[in-house]
Simulated assay, not measured.
Amino acid sequence: MLAVTDRPDEPHRVIWHVDDDLETATGVTSGAWILGGDYPVGLEREQDLLQVDAVLDSREAITAIAERMRSAAEELKASTKNLRLPAVTDPDWASYEEAFSGEPIAQECWVRVRAVVDLIGIWHGMERARLRRKALKEADPSYRPLPAR
């Protein structure tokens, strides 16, 4: 489980959980909270909600995941001939911003979540391709988690 976060202003925090398990296919958002201010969930819940595998608190942190995914793809392609992997693309921040509709205070967090969900879909495609190759599967038979750290 990942937590995508934003601090839009001093009294508020936005936290969105995203499940990156291979069984979820393309990533599933599994909870969103606006904490503080006039919202019903207080800031005292923040640390509890951040007990996840990784916390992604900026666009830069998410772009770094794409970079680590590209490195992983290069390593896989170097180790195996004719391995077809999905292309790792950088987040399309502008399209996510245009698609947003909802509570304005949550916009930046939602934009980040959309980017993470897209990257999870690409990563799952890479892992499925890797696990279909006998030699690669024998070297590491388990699903490798999204390189979020």
Rank of each mutant, 00 (worst) to 15 (best):
M1P: 13
M1E: 10
V4W: 04
V4R: 01
T5Y: 02
T5C: 13
P8Y: 00
D9Q: 12
E10G: 05
P11Q: 11
H12W: 04
H12S: 00
H12P: 01
R13V: 00
R13D: 01
V14S: 11
D19R: 06
D20R: 03
D21G: 07
L22Y: 09
E23R: 02
E23F: 03
T24C: 09
T24K: 10
A25S: 11
A25Y: 06
T26K: 12
T26D: 08
V28A: 14
V28Y: 04
V28W: 07
T29G: 15
A32N: 08
A32G: 13
W33F: 12
L35K: 06
L35H: 05
L35F: 01
G36V: 01
G36Y: 03
P40I: 08
P40F: 06
V41E: 11
V41T: 12
L43T: 02
L43H: 04
L43Y: 01
L43K: 06
E44Y: 04
R45A: 15
R45N: 09
R45M: 11
Q47D: 15
D48F: 15
L50K: 14
Q51W: 07
Q51F: 03
D53M: 01
D53V: 01
L56P: 02
D57Y: 08
E60M: 09
A61F: 02
A61I: 04
T63E: 12
A64T: 09
A64M: 10
I65S: 02
I65E: 03
E67Y: 08
R70G: 08
R70C: 09
R70F: 05
S71I: 02
A72F: 14
A73D: 03
E74V: 12
E75V: 07
E75C: 00
L76M: 13
L76V: 08
L76P: 11
A78P: 04
S79R: 14
S79D: 10
T80Y: 05
T80R: 10
N82E: 12
R84E: 07
L85N: 01
L85I: 05
L85R: 03
T89Y: 04
P91I: 12
P91T: 13
P91V: 13
W93F: 08
Y96T: 01
Y96H: 15
E98G: 03
E98H: 11
E98A: 15
A99T: 12
F100Y: 15
S101N: 10
S101I: 11
S101C: 10
E103A: 14
E103H: 13
E103Q: 12
P104Q: 09
I105Y: 03
A106C: 06
C109S: 10
R112G: 01
V113N: 02
V113A: 01
R114D: 07
R114L: 05
R114T: 04
R114S: 15
A115P: 02
V116T: 10
D118P: 02
D118T: 05
L119Y: 06
I120E: 05
G121E: 06
G121F: 02
G121Q: 05
I122R: 11
I122S: 13
H124M: 03
M126Q: 09
R128F: 01
A129S: 15
R130F: 07
R130L: 05
L131A: 12
R133S: 13
K137N: 09
A139Y: 00
A139L: 00
A139G: 03
P141H: 07
P141E: 03
P141N: 08
S142I: 04
Y143H: 14
P145N: 07
P147E: 03
R149Q: 13
R149D: 15
